[in-house]
Nucleic acid binder design. Structure first.
Lengths: 223, 223
DNA sequence: CCTGTATGAATGAAAG
DNA sequence: CTTTCATTCATACAGG
């Protein structure tokens, strides 16, 4: 199969449950820790990916080292799928919930505030699973998108750059006070030339060694 | 699609709910699971190391590779295909930077003094572009969100959790990070069965392959 | 299957 | 520090 079957990784994580009590065998991880872990693995995945790429480009000329790697790199899945370690499902409002949300939304106040959120959540939970975060996000998105749409529609100022949103390089939107541009340390200015091409990567380190051995050393991971 | 399309993100297993195991805040892992995790990370570390070595030995012969490297490598990173051709306006931490930041963060001191920021920024700049403002904001956000999450999810104090599996209660999560949010599943299934064949790679490779987590430095990671 | 589009969620940056 | 905004990521879902 062209598409390698994704591993059963997630199950290893979700398969948890039961026990623990005073059991010394159980470990409890907070979601935050899980997140950290996930990212750390992602770092390795990234490094491996890059190295593998490198390896491939090199072996096209020198295939000597291929063997070993062949074995080690046995799981393209984990590598490419490291991001997802834990499956994430996304909440989908039921028609009913959506209706209510919608009603509340244009019913006025666009800032539900914490307390309000709680209430709403509580009410909606009677129509299906939902959490405060969901409600929070919903309003957040609703407002943002409503705004954007509005801005895009009436816009006819001969600006061809009005444009949906693709690569709106000119953040001439209503934006804020800042002309935009991400901060850059005073020194090392040179790198700023990252025009449209994106580099954001490791090579920024030292041109000579794209991969710094140090970076691949496992560091102390969890607290 | 010659391009290493990784965006696939594995098949949709989120169909109709199902699964959804730990809707408790914490995840409980057995030693076995922890061990597996540890090993997998260790393997990653080892692979990276070996690849780095390989890379070094190869480039010593063909330094031309170094050049290409600089260009070739830029994008496939950032978890899950970052936009290919888009100039990014906002700073995005590289996995490496994130790892470091994260480490510093939970390393205790939640008070990134001006001086400290400078140091951190300097260190991180070795792994990519970054400015003090970025670091500052990062900590600011990190703290705020961490806090919010915690508040929203009062965890049972070391309470053992039987977690039979019913859990029909609606322990409204709320956090902000990964962990699964409940979906639609009015009813949940344990579904833990790792029915599918076999588990992927890594742990299998462990014994036979040349790499031995113990001998190689990758070791420390979990408390 | 593969592609495009709607939208839930994550997060850097800024305002309050 | 807390709340809000803007932008981007990833996925659920409808079409071909």
């Amino acid at each position: 199969k062209g598409v390698p079957k994704k591993g059963k990784w997630e199950e290893r994580w979700t398969e948890n449950g039961r026990k623990l009590a005073g059991n010394r065998l159980g470990h409890v991880m907070t979601d935050e820790q899980m997140e950290v872990l996930r990212k750390q693995i992602a770092v390795y995945a990234t490094i491996c990916e890059q190295l593998v790429e490198l390896h491939k480009s090199l072996t096209s000329q020198n295939d000597l080292a291929g063997v070993r790697l062949g074995n080690l790199y046995c799981d393209p899945l984990i590598t490419s799928g490291a991001h997802k370690i834990t499956g994430r499902q996304r909440w989908t409002p039921t028609p009913m919930q959506l209706q209510i949300l919608e009603r509340i939304f244009d019913q006025g106040i666009g800032t539900p505030s914490k307390q309000k959120i709680k209430e709403i959540t509580n009410e909606l939970s009677q129509h299906g699973q939902i959490s405060e975060t969901n409600v929070y996000n919903w309003f957040q998105n609703r407002r943002a998108r409503s705004k954007r749409k509005q801005q895009a529609a009436p816009q006819n100022n001969g600006e061809s750059e009005v444009e949906t949103e693709v690569e709106s390089l000119s953040p001439n939107h209503e934006k804020k006070t800042k002309p935009e541009e991400f901060h850059q340390p005073p020194h090392q200015q040179v790198l700023t030339s990252r025009t449209t091409d994106e580099d954001l990567c490791f090579q920024n380190t030292h041109p000579t060694t794209a991969i710094d051995p140090h970076t691949s050393k496992p560091e102390p991971m969890l607290p």
